[in-house]
Design a binder for these strands. Sequence first.
RNA 1: GGCGGCGUAGCUCAGUUGGUUAGAGCAGCGGAAUCAUAAUCCGCGUGUCCGGGGUUCGAGUCCCUGCGCCGCUACCA
Length: 535
Amino acid sequence: MPEPRRFYQTTAIDYPNSRPHIGTAFEKIGADVQARYRRQQGYRVHFLMGNDENTIKVVERAQQLGVDPKPYVDDMARQFREVWQSLDISFDDFIQTSEERHRIGCQKFIQRVYDAGDIYKRNYQALYCEGCEEFKTESQLTPQRRCPNHANRDLRLVEEENYFFRLSKYGPRLLELYEARPDFIQPEGRRNEVVSLVRGGLEDVSISRRNFTWGIDIPWDAEHKIYVWFDALLNYITGVGHGTDEALFAQWWPAAVHFIGKDITRFHCALWPAMLWSAGLELPQRVFAHGFVYIKNEATDEVQKISKSLGNVIEPLDIVREFSSDAFRYYFMRECPFGGDGEFSFARFAATYNGDLANNLGNLFSRTVSMAVRYFDGVLTGSRAIAPTDMFASVDLAALTASVSADIEACRYATALETIWRQVLDTGNRYIEETRPWLLANSSKPEYDLEACRRVLVNLAEAVRVAAILLRPFLPRTAAKLYAGFNFPGPFAEQSLATIVARPAEHEDLRVTAELVDGKLPPMFPKIEPQRAKA
RNA sequence: GGCGGCGUAGCUCAGUUGGUUAGAGCAGCGGAAUCAUAAUCCGCGUGUCCGGGGUUCGAGUCCCUGCGCCGCUACCA
C-alpha cells in the first residue's frame, strides 16, 4: 500500500465578537465539501478551523459583558463549534489564538523573522478619530480628510514606536511566485487583483502595538504585542504544531489549500508568503478566496449585506433545526457559486428545497424503495445476475465521475451538483416513466413481465447507489441514508468515486434495507409549505 | 482617477480556442401517467445575446466606443 496522500486544509479564523451567520457558514461548508471529498478519495485529511481572539474588539466586548477576555473567548469558541458541528462541518481541530500552542509557535516564528533581519523598529503614524475611538486609514477618509462618521472634527495624528516587517523587499519574489504558480490564488480574478496590488509596490507593515493588555508579547520586547495579521495568519502553522510539535508540523505543512473570504485575499497572498519565506518555511499550495452571501429582501427585492444594523442576520441553527443541515448545505453549494457571490432568501430556499431535494431526489428514492417493497417484498431475488446497465446506457459514468471530480477539486461545487442532478437524478426519474414498472408488475395488464420489472428496480437501485457516492461530500446524512436504502456491497466509507464504475462484487441479492415506518419510507425532505416560507 | 470584471428568456444562470435553427433549471401554458413527498414524464420561448460602430465568408464569442452595475486601489477582519 502506498502512503496515502496528505491534504491539510484550513478556513479563515473568525472574530468571536458575534455569533456566526450564514455568510460565515458558507465558507465552512465549502471547505467541508472539499475535506469530505478528499477523505472519500483516500487522502489523509487534516481540516483546521478556529477563532481569532487576540484583538482589541474581543477585550471591548468582554468588558461590556463584565467578564475577562479568556472565559469570554472560550465560551464563544464553544458556541462556534456548536454551530459548525450542527452543520456537519468535519473539522479535525479547532484552534483559538489565545491558546498556549499558538502563543509559543507565534513567538518562535516572529523570532525567526527577527533573526533573519526582516523586522525593525520605527515610528508609526496613524490618524485617530476620537469620536470612533479608533484609527482610520487613508482610504476611509472623506475628501476633506475627516472621519466619515465624525466629519465635523479633525483627526488626531498619533505617533508610536512600532516594529515593522520588511514586506517591501518581497515584492519581486511574490510576482515571480504568481507567475510560476498561476493557480496559487484562485479564482483567477482574485489573482489579478493581487498581482496588480503587488506590481504597484508594497510597503513595510507594522506588526506590533504598545499598551495592549491582551495578545501575544513580542518575545524580545514585552512592551509590544504582536498585531493582527502577523498573529492571525500564524494559526495555520501553530495549529499543526509549529513550535510545539515539530513532528506533527512536518507531517502536515505545507497546507494544500487555505479557504478564505475574498476580502482578505491580499493578506494571504502577499503578506503570508513573505512571512513564510522570511522564516524559511514552505508556502501553501493554494489559496481559494470565496465570495460573499447577501440577503435578498423579499419585500423590497433589495440585495443587502448581512449586518446586525440592518437586522437581517440569519442564524444557521434556525435553518438546521427547522429543515436539516443537508438542506442548508445544499442551498449554498447549489445556489451560490463558491468563487463568486450568492444570495439568500427564504423564497429561494424553499423553491430549491422543494424542487431539487424533495421532488427530484427524495421522491426518486421514495418511489424506488416503495416499488421494490410493493412488488417484491423488498427482495430483488436474482439481482446478482442482472447487470444494471440499462438506465445509464445514455450516460458515460466514467466521464461523469471525472467531471464531478474535477469540479469539486476546482471548488466548482454548484456545477458539480447540477451535473449530478441532470445526469443521475433526472435520468432516474425519466427511466421510471419510460419503463413503467407499475405496468410490468400488474398481472392484469398486457405489459405484465415480472422479470423485466425486477431488472428495472435493479437499475433504479443502481441510480441510488451512484447518487449516494456522488453526493456524499455535499450531503453526508442524505448520502448515508441513500446508501443504507439497499444492502449494497461494501461499507459506504470505502466507496470512493472510482467504485461508481468499478462496482464492488455482489455477494447477495439486493434487498431493501431502508428503515420503514408502517411499511412506508418516511419522506427524506418533507415539503416546505409555501406560506411557511417566512420573510 | 487608475486597474479589472460583468451586462444572455419573467427569475437564477451556462455558453471551450468566433462556425449549423443561442441552451439549462425555476416560474407559466397544454398534455400524459399514477410507483411516489399531487411527486414524475412529454410538448410549448418572435430572447433587440445592454446600445452603436468595426474586423470576418461568418461574432453572444474578437477590436473600438457609449451607457449601467460591481470588485480592487494595503496595515479595517
